[in-house]
């Protein structure tokens, strides 16, 4: 009986974000006649693309039961370098260089996470968050930095009627989905997240996997920065500030567990779109600006609550299963 109840609750918890999404769409659709339009859907996807790209990166890390709080700082460093030092270089060269910066900073995180095994990645990446944000502020002298028109024009470019940002987001999503679902590397990530000791015993090189996911996360943080700067045209010292909250919330809302081993990029993308849909709906219905932070806080709280409950129920179900087998 208890097992049945738990399974029903689990089902409801898994469905909760989708139900919330549906409710949000219906409510805002009723309140604004322009909300349910293709153009608005494109806008939401465009605006959520950098969050979604970064959230995909953090999904890799969360799947290993890690976390990366430095994504916003990496994003800022990458864009600051682009604006300050790579100004005259064509984007086809500048963008890969910025991506490499992201990989390097992600590698730094990975290295310290592996070397400082006694410390949770939360502490390690909290430290790098401050170091990297400090570095970016040092580089920019806290002044606003501007990118070249060639970068800004990308933010206004569409291919086949679809904005450039959505194309980048789509490519990142497809590659990430294939890597996680169809490759041994992807399966190893899940295995490490489920139980690193068992994964190591099974012959998986756990440090290599951990190092790789932080590199991926750093790379996608830099890509997210590029997508964002192409839209907003200038970066002040608040660029990427506290973006880790919606990024992590997007992944967790989409079903990726903070405790590792469960989730995927489909849910993450959904989570990012849900958050942006709410923001978009609030603006479109001319809601009082005082509500915005409250709504964002409620979303993050719900995401963490749902994940906590889901994990707790899964643990309970796991224990009962063993007991049943013992009796049998």
């Amino acid at each position: 009986m208890q097992v049945g109840e738990n399974r029903t609750t689990l089902l409801l918890l898994n469905a909760a974000p989708w139900v919330a999404f549906l409710a949000v769409v219906v409510v805002f659709g009723v309140l604004s006649d322009r909300f349910l339009t293709i153009q608005n859907f494109m806008n939401i996807l465009t605006q959520s693309s950098h969050i979604a790209i970064m959230a995909i990166g953090i999904t890799f890390v969360l799947l290993t039961a890690g976390i990366d709080l430095s994504v916003g700082a990496i994003m800022y460093v990458a864009v600051a370098v682009l604006a300050l030092f790579l100004g005259g270089i064509p984007v086809v060269i500048a963008f890969p260089l910025v991506g490499l910066i992201g990989v390097a900073l992600g590698a730094m995180n990975g290295y310290f996470v592996i070397k400082l095994r006694g410390q949770h990645p939360f502490i390690v990446t909290l430290a790098t968050l401050f170091i990297l944000r400090g570095a970016a502020i040092f580089l920019t002298d806290t002044r606003m930095v501007f990118v070249e028109e060639s970068v800004m024009s990308l933010g206004r470019t569409s291919y086949f009627g679809v904005p450039w940002a959505i194309w980048v987001f789509a490519v990142v999503f497809v590659i990430a989905w294939i890597v996680l679902r169809e490759t041994p590397f992807g399966r190893q990530i899940y295995a490490v997240g489920q139980d690193p000791t068992a994964a190591a015993k099974a012959g998986i090189n756990v440090p290599r996997i951990l190092f790789s996911v932080y590199c991926i996360c750093g790379f996608l943080a830099a890509v997210g920065g590029l997508v964002s700067i192409a839209q907003v045209a200038a970066a002040s010292s608040t660029f990427g500030f506290q973006i880790e909250f919606p990024v992590i919330a997007a992944a967790v809302l989409g079903g990726t567990s903070l405790f590792g081993g469960r989730g995927g990029v489909v849910g993450t993308v959904f989570g990012a779109v849900l958050i942006q849909t709410v923001q978009s709906g609030l603006v479109m219905t001319n809601a009082t600006p005082y509500i915005y932070p409250l709504v964002t806080a409620v979303i993050i709280f719900l995401a963490v609550l749902i994940d906590g409950l889901r994990t707790s129920i899964l643990d309970t179900l796991g224990r009962r299963k063993i007991r049943v087998e013992e009796i049998a």
């Binding site: 604004s32 322009r34 806008n43 605006q47 839209q231 907003v232 978009s280 603006v283």
Partner: peptide
């Protein structure tokens, strides 16, 4: 926040 300003104005212009 520049990011929020851009997204907010884009949404407002859409609505």
């Amino acid at each position: 926040n520049a990011d929020k300003a851009f997204a907010g104005l884009t949404n407002a212009l859409q609505a």
